[in-house]
């Protein structure tokens, strides 16, 4: 993994870009101790981010020590862990919030002790009383936008008709699902398409299938399905197989598919030509960015807005490129 590939794929929101563009004022200082209040190690995202953060910290120009704590998904324990890290006098508190509101009190306690805090992947809730000094997360809107946009462009190149899209969304209460829906809408607006129907899959292949099957009958001419995550892809495949519409790109019965996250099933379907675009859930980019920010946060730099990572779009053409493969983590 090299800096070159990351820069090629990563962009930040406008304000954060401005911050990035500011003169580097921090790399001169000594060792930075960062306390990690993590939910646990059992989930792949938790353990992968733990591993990658340590790797990037070891490779950093600044000496960075990571102090790890795990709360076993216990909100009260995470507050205790954060208190312990504050007592220890870490330079930065890095929290992967179990609960986006409860973490606010830990952020406040850190601030009272003069310690800046960084929220990782899950933002402190907007309505909470105290916000983290910086948030590093995934740009969920961009994920769906970039994936759907790639498919629309491919359809136009193929000469296919761009019209209505079926949207297999996640959980209606989930912020990520909502933002991905907004991203799809933006991609549709760009290409003069429209969302025919919002099918709630609840991040579950069975529920996705149950919602998609009747919709496919209602819209027999549909030629693009956009899925909110690869976790629901097996359900989508089942419905299309039953309907006789499961065919790789190039065959007449092919339905264009855009999806998000690049899990193993996504990779498999990209290679087989059934899936046309898949935007990665870029844990690697997020960890690299978090490590870069640590010394700056410790030095007292303030950030006006969130750092949202935009990962690359995987397509059947680039899926096996070495630099794309280097981005994978969920395998």
């Amino acid at each position: 993994m090299t800096r070159l590939t990351r820069r090629g794929f990563m962009a930040t929101t406008a304000a954060a870009s401005a911050a990035l563009g500011a003169p580097a004022i921090v790399h001169a200082q000594g060792k930075v101790t960062v306390g990690m209040a993590w939910p646990g190690m059992q989930d792949a995202v938790w353990s992968t981010s733990h591993k990658l953060l340590n790797e990037f910290a070891a490779a950093s120009d600044t000496e960075i020590e990571l102090v790890f704590t795990a709360a076993d998904m216990d909100v009260a324990k995470q507050a205790s862990d954060a208190n312990d890290l504050i007592s220890r006098g870490v330079d930065v508190l890095l929290v992967f919030p179990i609960d986006s509101k409860a973490i606010s009190s830990s952020v406040k306690r850190a601030r009272d002790a003069g310690i800046p805090s960084m929220a990782f992947l899950r933002q402190v809730h907007a309505d909470a009383r105290h916000q983290a000094d910086v948030f590093v997360g995934i740009d969920a809107k961009y994920q769906q936008l970039s994936s759907a946009r790639t498919v629309f462009e491919k359809m136009k190149a193929d000469g296919a008709e761009v019209g209505e899209v079926l949207w297999v969304s996640g959980d209606i209460r989930d912020e990520n699902s909502r933002l991905r829906g907004v991203g799809l809408q933006e991609a549709c607006d760009e290409h003069g398409a429209s969302i025919a129907q919002d099918l709630v899959g609840n991040w579950d292949p069975q529920q996705a299938a149950a919602a998609l099957a009747p919709a496919l009958k209602a819209y027999p001419d549909i030629n693009h399905i956009s899925v909110a995550s690869d976790v629901m892809m097996s359900g989508v495949r089942q419905v299309l197989q039953d309907a006789g519409r499961w065919a790789p790109h190039g065959e007449p019965s092919h339905i264009y598919l855009s999806s998000v996250d690049v899990f193993p099933i996504g990779l498999e379907l990209l290679r087989s030509g059934h899936l046309d675009a898949d935007t990665i859930f870029d844990v690697t980019g997020m960890c690299r960015e978090a490590v870069d920010l640590m010394p700056r946060l410790a030095a007292g730099e303030s950030f006006d807005s969130d750092i949202l990572i935009q990962g690359p779009v995987f397509t059947p053409d680039n899926v096996d490129d070495p630099e794309m493969q280097a981005q994978l983590w969920a395998t």
């Binding site: 998904m73 216990d74 909100v75 009260a76 507050a79 179990i98 609960d99 509101k101 409860a102 606010s104 009190s105 909470a128 009383r129």
Partner: peptide, 8 residues
């Protein structure tokens, strides 16, 4: 915690 959750 400043909040009540289902898994405190």
């Amino acid at each position: 915690l400043g909040t009540a959750t289902t898994a405190m």
